[in-house]
Structure formats: C-alpha cells, structure tokens
Design a protein around this nucleic acid. Structure first.
Length: 228
DNA sequence: CATTGATCATGT
DNA sequence: ACATGATCAATG
C-alpha cells in the first residue's frame, strides 16, 4: 500500500508521475488484474488510481484526501480530449433537507477542490492499453460555482416540494439529477407531493459533459470547439 | 439500504 | 450520434 500523500504538491507530483503509463502497466505494479472491459467493473479505473495515489480504499463519507481537502476523479476522455461520460459527484439528499443550503451541502464540499485525472476511455482501446493523462487540480471559479449553485437550487426545489418524480436529467444546465442505484427497483425515502414520506429511486448529482469539458479545455488550453 | 467507484446500452 | 435512464461491484 502506498502511504497517503501529505501535501497537495506531493499528490500532484504522484499523479503527474502516472501520466503516460497504461492502465495495464499500473495494474501490474500493484498485482491487479486488468479486466477485458468495464461492463462488470465500472469503477475499476477509479479504484486503480486510488491505489496508485494512496487514497484510502473503500467507502468514505467525504473527499478522498480529506486532510488535503481534495477529491479524486478519473474522467474518461476521447482522443480529442473531451469527456466521454458525465461525472458522478454524490448522492442527492431526498429527505431531511430543511435548512440545507448550497453553502453547507455535501456536493459543494466535494467540488471545492478536485484532482482530475483524464484517462483514455474509448471502448475500441482495450482497458489495459488505455493511457493515463496529465492530471490537473481544479477549484471552481466564482462563475462556475454560481452556475452549479443555481442548478442545485433548482433541483432541490423539486425535492423539497415533493416533486422528485418530475425531475429528469434534462433539468439543470451543468448539474443534473439521475438515478444512482443498483437497479431500477432500489428504493430510498423522499418527500411526496403532500409532504408525506414516499419511496423512490435513489438519485445522484452528475456534472454534464460540457461543464467538465470546459475545465479540461481551459487547463490544457485546448480550443473550445475541436476541429479535428 | 447507503456509500464508494463509475460506465453501459437503449431510446430518440 | 448521444444523452438518459439503468446498471455493476465492493464494502459497511
């Protein structure tokens, strides 16, 4: 096991040292077996990077590197550097939301500082041959945070009013609410239209692709619109 | 069931 | 072609 990094610089240096390696090469260093595809191990890449960087494995309530106040996110990218998937942030609170504000929300804490690690994600590339890209540490700008807060407030309004069922992934410009469960039969408690408790599918907050795309593009100074 | 890690795969 | 809704694994 790799010890936890003791500073942001150390973490970033470690992540930078991973750039250029393939997932197969990294897996081999840790005696892990690279799956042929991710159909049955959707979180495999994220777990591998956690291992490489000394994040504590298993489920933790807050950021991956809590002492450093940093959340680790791997992000699958195309050959043009654009995200191939939305990014899961955290489960959405559907009950006990009285007094909950953006400022004290779980999602704001998670997104306060993120270490993004781009990884080749096209399915044509075998998992073990996919390359790890250059990492970047990101903190939301005032504008980005305002955008996220606006979306969060819109979505939370539905939840508070007992209208969870009316929310679709189309709501929110940058942040969306989508199912986050083992399957469509999973249930959790939420507010009904009359304030009574109801059972519903657990949901999670996800960052839409254009949002994460801009983060990567801004950092790597890529053109806003790719012309490849 | 809830949390962590996300991607799959079908409908439009 | 792509986003939405569905799904997978491990762990507490």
């Amino acid at each position: 096991m790799i010890p936890a990094p003791t500073s942001e610089n150390e973490l970033l240096e470690r992540a930078t040292a991973l750039a250029g390696f393939t997932l197969g090469e990294l897996a081999e260093q840790y005696g892990l077996v690279c799956p042929a595809d991710l159909r049955r191990e959707k979180g495999w890449v994220g777990m591998l990077l956690e291992t490489c960087l000394g994040a504590t494995a298993g489920s933790k309530p807050e950021q991956d590197f809590q002492d450093l106040g940093i959340e680790l996110k791997s992000i699958p990218i195309s050959h043009t550097g654009k995200p191939l998937e939305t990014t899961f942030v955290c489960v959405a609170p559907l009950t006990n939301v009285h007094g909950l504000t953006w400022e004290n929300s779980h999602i704001r804490n998670k997104l306060s500082k993120v270490l993004w690690i781009p990884v080749e994600g096209e399915r044509e590339i075998p998992v073990c041959e996919r390359h790890v890209g250059m990492p970047l540490i990101w903190q939301p700008s005032d504008e980005e945070e305002a955008q996220l807060k606006a979306d969060w407030e819109e979505l939370m309004e539905f939840i508070v009013l007992g209208k969870v069922h009316q929310i679709t992934a189309k709501h929110g410009e940058y942040l969306q609410l989508r199912p986050k469960a083992a399957n469509s039969k999973a249930v959790t408690e939420a507010y009904g239209a009359n304030g009574q408790p109801i059972k519903t599918l657990p949901r999670g907050f996800y960052l839409k692709k254009p949002f994460t795309s801009r983060i990567l593009a801004a950092h790597f100074m890529l053109p806003a619109e790719d012309t490849f």
